[in-house]
Amino acid sequence: MSKIECRDLTKVFRLGSSYFQAIRNLSFEVDAGELVAVVGKTGCGKSSALNIILGLNRPTAGKLVIDGKEPYNDFDHFRGKLSAVFQTDRLIPWRTVLRNATYALEILRIPQERRIEKARCWLEKLGLSGFENAYPHELSGGMRQRVGIARAFSIDPDILLCDEAFGHLDEVTAIKLRADFLELVRETKKTSLFITHDIDEAMDLGERVLVLGKPARLLMDIQVPSEIKSSPARRAELKSRIIKAIESDEPAAQG
């Protein structure tokens, strides 16, 4: 199990002749085995942060460290350790459901028999049995996203990242998928970071919620109390605090 540490992370993009700051001195930590939701306005640099955690982009300043190593600089160290579920399913259109689910395992050079067995097991858990030979375009959005989740879990990563994974699904499908996802995360005890713009989703999924401003920096870091499940009043109060923090775009008092 792995721990994510983010220290004074800054990311600046060049846009033509001007500069655009997506992340400004972002600091936070995610403990091993913790499920943390990150919430913020759309376009607040959450996805840039995700790409830095995945090691696909280099931070402009500051450090992003997982188990003492930086995903960008020690790129190959993280082989098989990171997985992501993206906003759009990002399935390979020319591969069937089964072969999409084996994609990551194939990269890790798991022998064919083993990888088919593993992929089938995950597809079954996500309710996709019987669709192994379908192509992505033949499935609904919710089912495609399930294949994406199966692919992410298939390699049994240390860290699981989700970027607005259920954002474009209809509410009923999203609720069901969220519940299934949560169960799998709990069952496999992965360190997970769940990025979303939906405050309710953040409160439902995260044990802890990080609220980001725009450009991305930490405004609030709160433990989600378990009472919110039973007390709508507590829930509403927490939600309004998060909304206030996002609206003011100023770091809020902790507590």
Binding site: L56, D76, S83, R90, I92, Y103, E106
Partner: peptide, 24 residues
């Protein structure tokens, strides 16, 4: 670019990127 990033996140070798993503 989306598929490329998804693939790279799993740390493939150059040959794997070529064979599994570029050629198809």
């Amino acid at each position: 670019k989306d598929l490329m990033e998804m693939t790279l996140a799993f740390r493939p070798t150059r040959t794997q990127v070529f064979r599994m993503l570029i050629v198809p």
